[in-house]
């Protein structure tokens, strides 16, 4: 049963990676920016989730508030931080984003304390048995929630007019613009949706660990970067596959390679190996 259990754990972890990485890959597709500060929004999502749940007792309300606030903040980051430097060389936005991320983490540390905060009555802690393995209700919620959100996103982007415009813009911004797309509006939407998804991931991680700390974004931030590179930068399908694959590989890897490499090193060893064979990413075209 160990294999199945590891697979399940890997998929849960992979779902969280996916929620964070999708926003990142959308931003990359549209603006060619490695939006490191995205992980800062993920952390904020977790904080808002815990604070609102503790204040009102409703996890659902917390989720909605978290998505709204973080989504709007994502739009503000685009407007105030990225838009003015879009015509500069790519490293400018990358380094600005790293700076912003570090500053955000420090602000959380100063505002909420270095040891983090927890749920007073952690929700969804009951244990369920599925296919002969034990899972916490929270873990099931993560998997199902991710499936629903990504499914809704897929429906939105393929079945609605705005979704089509959005996909066209992410694929080829210049072409879309010449067809009369209001590219600024698409960018705002893009940042809102991507950041809101990161907020969901933040709330879920807070649920699984029952802890939100200032640095909880660090590891997902680097991992998500690795994932979107694996996925072929800007390719949403590739990103989802890479996220789930990385979650599973880490789960098995920590068991079999744990004596030589720690979890993060396994992820990056995998990244480097793949890039050596396919410099354009898993699904990317040369």
């Amino acid at each position: 049963m160990l294999y199945v259990e590891l697979l399940a754990q890997g998929l849960v972890q992979g779902s969280i990676y996916a929620l964070v990485a999708v926003g990142l890959t959308l931003v990359y597709g549209l603006l060619r920016i490695l939006h490191v500060a995205h992980a800062g929004l993920f952390t904020l999502g977790g904080y808002i989730g815990v604070l609102v749940t503790n204040a009102t007792g409703s996890l659902l309300l917390a989720l909605v508030v978290s998505m709204l606030v973080v989504g709007l903040l994502g739009m503000a980051i685009y407007r105030l931080c990225y838009q003015p430097i879009l015509d500069k060389p790519p490293y400018v936005a990358l380094i600005a984003s790293i700076g912003l991320f570090i500053a955000m983490e420090e602000i959380y540390r100063i505002a909420f304390g270095p040891y983090g905060i927890s749920y007073q009555n952690p929700p969804l802690q009951d244990v369920v048995y599925i296919f002969g393995i034990t899972l916490r209700l929270g873990e099931v919620a993560v998997g199902v929630g991710t499936l629903v959100l990504i499914g809704a996103l897929a429906l939105f982007s393929t079945k609605t007019r705005f979704g089509t415009v959005w996909r066209a813009t992410v694929t080829d911004p210049k072409m879309a613009e010449s067809f009369g797309v209001d590219i600024i509006k698409v960018r705002y939407l893009n940042f809102f949706i991507g950041s809101a998804l990161a907020a969901v991931a933040g709330v879920m991680v807070a649920l699984l660990n029952n802890l939100v700390e200032p640095t909880m974004g660090s590891v997902p931030s680097y991992k998500a970067l690795a994932i979107i590179v694996l996925g072929g930068l800007g390719d949403v399908r590739g990103t989802l596959i890479a996220a789930l694959a990385l979650g599973v590989i880490e789960a098995y890897g920590t068991i079999y390679l744990g004596n030589y490499l720690d979890r993060d090193a396994i992820a990056f060893a995998f990244l480097i190996l793949v890039l050596m064979v396919r410099p354009q990413g898993l699904l990317g075209r040369a």
Partner: peptide, 9 residues
Amino acid sequence: GGLLFAMMR
């Protein structure tokens, strides 16, 4: 972090 960001921006 602040300096990095402000410098680039």
